[in-house]
Simulated scan of single mutants.
Amino acid sequence: MIKRINLEHILFLDIETVPQHENFEELDDTSKMLWELKSQYQRKEEISAEEFYERAGIWAEFGKIVCISVGYFVLKGDVRNFRVTSFHGDEVKILKEFKTLLETHFNKTHHVLCAHNGKEFDFPYIARRMIINSISLPFKLDLFGKKPWEVPHLDTLELWKFGDYKTFTSLKLMAHILGIPSPKDDIDGSQVRNVFYNEGDIDRIIIYCEKDTVTVAQILLRLRNEPILTEDEILSV
């Protein structure tokens, strides 16, 4: 079934997120209290809400998006290219530019979005941050009233589960077992906050995000039993 989808109809993506503020002390009193309640079941008893705040980026209510990288296939005869680009800067700017892309180039019924663990993280995170920032949802992220088979989302993690709901397989592990060059050769998700706030190196985050986007595409190719992309087929635009 997955081989029936035209590769040119898929927009691959990955997002990078950080806490809304650099430090816990920057939160107002109500937000501090709500963060403590939100995180109480995730953190160990000996870890305070303040110490745990460095992980706030994984929740849309307490985090923000600093980069969205997207990739798409361009097929011309026997020539196959995969083009990657990124949106970064102010979060509202990122979200609006991403929305414009969806509404101008990936707005047809047959177009789908694809990410690793996208249904649990990337897609709802983007939608929630749009609502928080008073940006109306594009059709591809507005799931209200849609039947399961009408949701235009592909998730490489879900595809790999084959109906098994007990397991989580990271992008890095899937890349390794499928013989795909690892995207994690510089930083990992736990370091994005430090790179963003302490080093101010958004270019490093963009490179990391784009590599993950390419890897999602590579995994889908392997799931379709097709050759993975070579370096000269990947273009940054």
Results as ranks from 00 to 15, higher is better:
93 K>A: 03
213 T>S: 04
48 S>M: 10
71 G>V: 00
125 Y>N: 02
129 R>Y: 10
1 M>L: 11
152 P>F: 04
216 V>L: 04
41 Y>S: 15
115 A>Q: 12
171 L>Q: 08
151 V>F: 01
155 D>H: 02
24 F>P: 08
129 R>I: 09
82 F>P: 08
187 I>T: 05
37 L>H: 08
90 D>K: 14
53 Y>R: 01
160 W>R: 11
73 F>Q: 04
99 K>E: 14
221 L>K: 14
209 C>M: 12
130 M>K: 06
90 D>L: 06
46 E>M: 09
232 D>T: 14
131 I>R: 07
68 I>G: 07
157 L>W: 10
92 V>M: 05
202 I>D: 00
77 G>Q: 08
204 R>D: 00
118 G>V: 07
199 E>G: 00
174 M>I: 10
230 T>P: 02
214 V>A: 00
103 E>F: 05
90 D>Q: 14
237 V>T: 12
161 K>G: 01
157 L>T: 02
34 L>T: 12
211 K>I: 01
63 G>C: 12
149 W>V: 09
93 K>W: 08
52 F>W: 13
176 H>N: 14
147 K>V: 00
205 I>H: 07
43 R>F: 02
155 D>W: 06
190 S>Q: 10
112 V>F: 07
74 V>Y: 01
83 R>E: 13
230 T>V: 04
30 T>N: 12
99 K>L: 09
197 Y>N: 07
75 L>W: 00
15 I>R: 11
57 G>T: 00
127 A>L: 10
141 L>E: 01
199 E>Y: 09
198 N>P: 01
123 F>R: 04
204 R>G: 02
183 P>D: 06
15 I>W: 08
142 D>A: 15
232 D>H: 15
65 I>E: 03
103 E>Q: 13
58 I>F: 15
121 F>Y: 15
192 V>P: 05
100 T>P: 02
111 H>I: 06
105 H>E: 12
160 W>V: 10
78 D>Q: 12
216 V>C: 09
175 A>L: 05
35 W>F: 15
21 H>S: 14
98 F>I: 03
92 V>Q: 08
182 S>I: 09
214 V>L: 03
222 R>H: 00
164 D>C: 10
107 N>P: 05
27 L>D: 11
42 Q>C: 12
6 N>V: 07
